[in-house]
């Protein structure tokens, strides 16, 4: 009877250990996804957001990017190589035009062509309301490249896929 109890407790400890291992040491795919969740969290804006939170979020956005990041969005005339400071400034300016903003990512397809490089194809949906009350709702397919630099996955390329070319 005592043996069975020890076995059960042992089994439980092993199961908890396995869960703890995966929780505290997530695989690379989870780490890449986390960067998108952070980007989503920091780009998003609630109507009640105060100035301190806004400044903190804008500052944080820059930390997700490589020293230089290639942006390709022909329809938004936003193409070129930008420093993380420029990206933070641009994000801050774009956020200031909207009273509410929500960025969500779906349909992740992640693969690793090299050890420290991740290529991600996904859907990005941006919804919100402008300062004048106009509704914003844009969905696009994105292709991103993230590089692992000093154990952190950083965005180095973001391309908005042009499905319909006028």
């Amino acid at each position: 009877m005592v043996k069975i109890r020890y076995l059960l407790v042992g089994g439980l400890i092993v199961i908890i250990g396995i869960f703890a291992f995966f929780y505290f040491f997530p695989n690379e795919e989870k780490k890449v996804k986390k960067q998108f969740h952070l980007l989503s969290e920091w780009v998003s804006k609630s109507p009640e957001e105060n100035a301190f939170t806004m400044l903190q979020k804008i500052k944080n956005i820059g930390t997700l990017f490589d020293e230089r990041c290639e942006l390709k969005a022909p329809s938004q005339s936003l193409s070129g190589s930008y420093t993380r400071e420029e990206i933070s400034t641009y994000a801050g300016s774009a956020r200031s035009h909207l009273s509410q903003l929500d960025l969500k990512f779906y349909d992740f397809h992640i693969f690793f062509p090299e050890k420290e490089i991740a290529k991600v194809t996904l859907t990005g949906r941006l919804t919100g309301r402008s300062g004048t009350g106009e509704q914003v709702d844009e969905t696009r397919e994105l292709e991103c490249v993230l590089k692992k630099i000093e154990r952190k996955w950083l965005f180095s390329e973001i391309e908005v896929v042009e499905v319909l070319k006028k």
Binding site: Y106, D107, V163
Partner: peptide, 11 residues
């Protein structure tokens, strides 16, 4: 039907 984004957004 044109696949616009991911596997769910169609035009």
């Amino acid at each position: 039907t044109v696949r616009f984004a991911g596997s769910k957004v169609m035009l």
